[in-house]
């Protein structure tokens, strides 16, 4: 399978009285991530399944990825906590993207690629960054095809 692990785009700082889960993307965050999606589109990314966390910044990032989705979009709290077997079991389509948060997205990539979650520091994500993995969704058995920063994907999206 192809698996894209995505960290949510740039979100607003918390304001007094606001729940962390209710922080929206900033205008600049949306604009920049639209460029990321253009880059993914140029790379011919088509998704059978898009899973995202229930936090607003992940929901809004998933919204921006809609142009890539040919199947279902699904909310899951499994992406708002440390990666689990249940999350891996949910990867049941040939082409899946996950939108989540740090440190969990780094832990997930470390787990799937090396089998060791504690190596997460070796797989850092910028906001709006994307890790592209391939292979069977089994810890230690996936290949990291590329780790793309938002700037790289925006540059890909700008080229004609």
């Amino acid at each position: 399978m192809k698996l894209l692990v995505v960290r949510h785009a740039i979100a607003a700082d918390p304001v007094e009285g606001q729940r962390d889960s209710a922080r929206p993307l900033t205008s600049a965050g949306k604009r920049k991530f639209e460029g990321v999606v253009r880059g993914l589109k140029r790379l011919d990314v088509k998704l059978d399944l898009l899973l995202h966390s229930p936090l607003l910044r992940a929901v809004e990032t998933a919204d921006l990825m809609n142009a890539l989705v040919e199947g279902e979009t699904r909310v899951t709290s499994l992406l708002a906590r440390a990666p689990s077997k249940a999350l891996i079991e949910a990867l049941d389509e040939p082409s899946v993207a996950l939108v989540g948060h740090e440190p969990y997205v780094s832990e997930l990539v470390a787990w799937l690629v090396t089998g060791e979650r504690q190596l997460a520091r070796g797989f850092p994500f910028k906001k709006g960054g994307v890790a592209w993995l391939e292979g069977e969704p089994v810890p230690g058995q996936m290949t990291l095809a590329s780790m793309l920063t938002p700037a790289q994907l925006r540059a890909i999206g700008r080229k004609k």
């Binding site: 889960s21 929206p24 229930p54 936090l55 607003l56 929901v59 909310v75 899951t76 249940a86």
Partner: peptide, 15 residues
């Protein structure tokens, strides 16, 4: 299900 709970959580944040 976890999905139902996550949906209700997510809806609480919709602007």
């Amino acid at each position: 299900s976890e999905r139902c709970e996550a949906l209700l959580d997510a809806l609480a944040n919709v602007p």
